[in-house]
């Protein structure tokens, strides 16, 4: 990809650390999650690549969680690793209700999750929902979820998800907008989904995370979403999912610019230290692997169900 060679890149030692950290966190995520899955939804373990994908997302959340914790000035201990893994699993299963069971299921999930967040009630109808509820309960049990910042982050994440589903299921109003406004809507939607998600994660790991660093994590979150959407470009187009990254004219260049701008902001704004290094190295690794995923998926075709690290 043109321009990648001019980007900042972590030194080889740090990249090796990130690789070995990812291996370690993959193993630990599995140690935390497999017993819960075995107890509440064992069928997931035999469900092809879905369980592996969940472990991969939890691994990524653990890496990002490690960075956030150190940026917040704390040690990334066992409890925080567990919380990161739970958060990854929670996001994965929550997203599966939106992505994998059709439009009605997506709408229904949004309604039921709203009831859960506004009134605390959730009808558990099958093992997948039971697993989702248990993971969410365990995560919520780790901290004071009524802390104002954490509450706002959790609910804002839900609202961003809701807007994403609305855009997907009712794209009519989006089509009447001018191209620039349409792209703005999609960009903001992607930014908020991952921006609020990383805010939730950081507040679970470090309650009282300094406000002056939150917006930088938000930037990192938005970048993760753009990178992710670029990697999922062909699958999203196949499923008629409109995203910012599959609507811009030159996605590679757009992503490259967003990456360069975002990482520059993080380097300048975050406190020097291991947390910043891990976050930047993780973003770099994610960026490179998703560009590769984009290329591979274009060649593999629409039915690919490959698990990417």
């Amino acid at each position: 990809m043109a321009g990648v060679s001019h980007l900042w890149e972590p030194d080889s030692g740090l990249l090796r650390d990130i690789e070995s950290m990812a291996r370690d966190y993959r193993r630990r995520a599995e140690e935390h999650l497999k017993p819960i899955v075995s107890s509440y939804y064992p069928a997931l373990l035999d469900g092809g690549g879905e369980y592996r994908k969940m472990i991969e997302l939890s691994t990524k959340m653990t890496m990002v969680g490690h960075a956030c914790t150190e940026i917040g000035g704390y040690r990334f201990d066992e409890r925080r690793r567990r919380m990161s893994a739970l958060f990854g699993a929670c996001c994965f299963i929550g997203d599966s209700f939106i992505d994998d069971f059709g439009d009605d299921a997506a709408r229904e999930y949004i309604e039921r999750y709203e009831l859960l967040l506004t009134r605390g009630w959730f009808d558990i109808r099958n093992d997948r929902e039971r697993l989702f509820f248990v993971i969410l309960t365990r995560l919520f049990g780790e901290r004071d979820v009524l802390d104002p910042m954490l509450r706002q982050a959790i609910f804002s994440l839900f609202l961003a998800q809701k807007r994403d589903v609305d855009l997907r299921l009712d794209p009519g109003w989006l089509k009447v907008l001018r191209r620039r406004s349409r792209l703005d809507q999609l960009r903001v939607c992607a930014r908020d989904r991952s921006g609020h998600a990383i805010t939730v994660l950081s507040l679970f790991l470090v309650p009282g995370f300094p406000l002056r660093y939150h917006h930088l994590l938000y930037t990192a979150g938005a970048l993760i979403m753009y990178i992710d959407d670029h990697g999922d470009c062909y699958s999203d187009l196949y499923h008629n999912r409109v995203t910012y990254m599959n609507q811009v004219k030159n996605p590679s260049v757009t992503l490259l610019r967003a990456f360069a701008r975002g990482t520059e902001r993080l380097r300048k704004g975050l406190p020097e230290g291991r947390g910043r290094e891990i976050l930047l190295a993780f973003l770099y690794r994610y960026f490179i692997t998703r560009i590769e995923k984009h290329r591979l998926e274009r060649d593999r075709g629409r039915y690919s169900w490959t698990v990417y690290e």
């Binding site: 967040l117 506004t118 605390g120 979820v145 509450r151 930014r191 921006g195 917006h215 938000y218």
Partner: peptide
Amino acid sequence: RIDYRKEAATAPFQFDMA
């Protein structure tokens, strides 16, 4: 109730994350 919108509207400040 996790939803904090009612309380948030009465706060003196708002931080723009973006």
